[in-house]
Simulated assay, not measured.
Amino acid sequence: MVDFQTIYRKCSRANLLGEPCHVLQQFLDKNGSVLIVTDHTVSSFKSIEGYALQSDACRAFFPKQSVEELKASSHLHYIREQCLKVDFVTPPLMKNQFLRQFAKAIETGANLEKVAEEFCLENV
């Protein structure tokens, strides 16, 4: 079994994440790895560029950006931070438009409890 966590840590410490995939491939080859590295993009809420690493038995994905950078650039992170200010837990399948409006109301409101109460009574 391939220890992808250790490999990711080594690549990160060598500042290789974000480099072209052939640079990562050369680094892994020098360290005795039998992995094949290709560019890959994961698309869900947001496209995340990275590398697909393939061995005979398993496959992994390493993002080119750090997890902290990915979190900071996400509108979902912003919405989460705003909702935490009023102890609001978002139910599953809540519309994105509602969440954005709610987060903006929290950010610009003075009395956060009142903002949360009024917004939820009007929209939920």
Rank of each mutant, 00 (worst) to 15 (best):
F27P: 00
N111F: 14
Q65H: 11
K104L: 10
P92F: 06
L53C: 15
Q25F: 04
F102I: 10
K46H: 05
L35D: 04
P91F: 01
A52E: 15
P63W: 02
I79V: 06
G109K: 15
L17N: 02
A52G: 13
K71H: 00
K71Q: 08
S43E: 13
E68A: 00
P20E: 05
R59W: 14
G50Q: 02
A103E: 02
S33G: 10
E69C: 06
F102N: 08
K10R: 12
Q26L: 14
K95D: 07
C58I: 13
S66L: 10
S73E: 07
L28H: 15
Y78G: 04
Q65R: 14
A105N: 02
K46E: 01
K71L: 04
K114F: 12
S47A: 13
K71C: 01
T108L: 15
S73M: 05
G109H: 13
S43M: 04
D87S: 09
V42K: 11
L17Q: 04
S47G: 10
A14P: 08
I106P: 10
A103W: 00
L24K: 06
E19M: 11
K114E: 10
H75S: 04
H40E: 11
K104Q: 13
A103C: 06
K95M: 07
Y51C: 13
A72Y: 07
V34Q: 14
S74V: 04
K10N: 13
K64N: 10
V23P: 05
N31Y: 12
C58V: 12
A110S: 15
H22L: 07
F88L: 00
Q101H: 04
E68K: 02
S47C: 10
L28T: 10
S44P: 07
P92H: 09
Q82Y: 03
R13W: 08
S66P: 05
H77K: 05
D29V: 12
L93N: 12
V23I: 11
K46G: 02
R13N: 09
V115L: 11
V42C: 08
I36E: 09
K104E: 15
L16C: 04
R13V: 04
K85C: 07
K10S: 13
N15L: 03
L28E: 12
A72G: 04
H22Q: 08
V37H: 05
L93A: 14
V67W: 14
P63T: 00
N31H: 15
Y78T: 01
D29I: 12
F27I: 11
H40Y: 13
K95W: 03
L99A: 01
L93G: 08
F61L: 14
C83E: 07
L24P: 01
L84D: 06
T108C: 12
T108D: 11
V67D: 03
A60W: 01
V42R: 13
